[in-house]
Amino acid sequence: MQWESWSAFWNMGGAGFFVWGSYGLTFALVALELVLVFQRRKDTVNRLLRWRKAVGRNGSGVGAGKESPGESRAIP
């Protein structure tokens, strides 16, 4: 084992800010990306469901005058 105590582990030989700052931001970004991806999925499904209701369920999207389900090309 490398560390004598938990405080030594968090201190990282005086470089705690740099080490934990790196790991902290990395995992924060990963978490943020996952949240955005799932948010995007939920939004898309709901928007497409509303859109299908609006254009009727024939699946062709013709006839209701609303060809596009609105804002559609966002990439999270």
Binding site: M12, G13, G14, A15, F18, V19, S22, Y23
Partner: peptide
């Protein structure tokens, strides 16, 4: 020292 441990993600 310990700061090199950043490379494991860098």
């Amino acid at each position: 020292g310990e700061v090199y441990r950043v490379i494991f993600i860098h």
